[in-house]
């Protein structure tokens, strides 16, 4: 069944878009990520312009993460005070990121910067996560005890001041690295047009040693707020949010997220991390291949900026 999208200005198959929402929603519920780094390229592949894709995906992510966050809230598997601290840094980071975004756009190499940051960031983070996941699984196989948390192994930033106890996460850390991570999330999110959940989850696990089950719910709360804000800002400034497209994606997304969240809770932490790592790495490799291989068509056509 075809439907014409009022802002994207093209007809799409409702079931294809719904299935995309469902699949990305499942992944986002499972790993506690927004899924923007998957959905945006998918929409562009469908023929939706990059601007409309990025803007519309933000509302889809908001819906998915809200439904996921409610599920985790019922299980008390999220840490609101940690989310609030991250958000404080995130807002400053977003502002800084938007500033750099505007500067790069003026230089005329924004597309390349986005592609390169996808390759570098997704490639390195994905490789790290895969390596770590494989090591953890091998440890389990060889019969050694699972190292879920290492209470004694404090890193340098555990000595930093302004310490705060986050009860839900059962951690006692300085607020400086928490703000720092939040800032980085906002900064990267603004430049790459992604929620950044796939980065936030491993960072909270590796640096702050937040338990995996709390991490996902907490990350969803943060994603929810940033993406809802992004939806409003994109609508108010660029008029690029397609409500029809968003609704189809949302309905698919929230349905998928419900099943994904259940699948995620049933799965073991290290396996979950390995899977997510493989997924992130795959997207990074995909971008790298696109950059290196000779494109099918060297020429591309686009409306002049500002005209949309």
């Amino acid at each position: 069944m075809q439907i014409y999208l009022p802002i994207a200005d093209l007809p799409v198959n409702v079931f294809v878009v719904f299935a995309m929402g469902l699949a990305v929603g499942f992944i986002s519920g499972m790993f506690g990520i927004g899924g923007g780094f998957l959905m945006t390229p998918l929409l562009i592949f469908l023929g939706v312009s990059p601007g409309v894709s990025v803007a519309t995906v933000s509302s889809h992510i908001a819906a998915s993460s809200f439904s996921g966050a409610i599920t985790y809230w019922r299980r008390r598997a999220l840490d609101l005070s940690l989310a609030a601290m991250l958000l404080a840094g995130g807002i400053v980071g977003t502002a800084a990121g938007v500033g750099l975004f505007t500067y790069l756009r003026a230089l005329g190499q924004l597309d390349l910067t986005i592609s390169l940051s996808y390759v570098i960031l997704l490639g390195s983070v994905g490789s790290l996560m895969v390596a770590e996941g494989v090591r953890a699984i091998l440890r389990v196989r060889s019969g050694k005890p699972v190292e879920l948390r290492r209470p004694g192994s404090h890193t340098w930033f555990h000595g930093l001041p302004f310490k705060l106890r986050f009860k839900q996460s059962r951690i006692y850390v300085s607020t400086i690295p928490v703000w720092g991570i939040g800032f980085l999330m906002g900064f990267i999110g603004a430049i790459m047009g992604i929620g950044g959940g796939f980065l936030l989850v491993p960072m909270l696990i590796y640096f702050l040693r937040v338990p995996t089950n709390v991490v996902i719910g907490t990350s969803m709360v943060l994603t929810l707020i940033t993406m809802a804000t992004a939806t409003v800002l994109h609508s108010a400034t660029n008029h690029l949010v397609d409500a029809t497209l968003a609704l189809i994606l949302m309905v698919g997304g929230v349905t998928g997220a419900q099943f994904g969240a259940r699948a995620g809770q049933r799965m073991r932490g290290e396996r979950l991390r390995l899977l997510l790592g493989a997924l992130v790495l795959a997207v990074g490799v995909r971008f790298a291949v696109d950059l290196v291989l000779r494109p099918e068509d060297l020429y591309s056509i686009r409306l002049l900026d500002g005209a949309q």
Binding site: A62, F66, A243, V254
Partner: peptide
């Protein structure tokens, strides 16, 4: 749109 997203979720 944001409210629609929250409602759907």
């Amino acid at each position: 749109t944001a409210v629609m997203a929250l409602l759907t979720g």
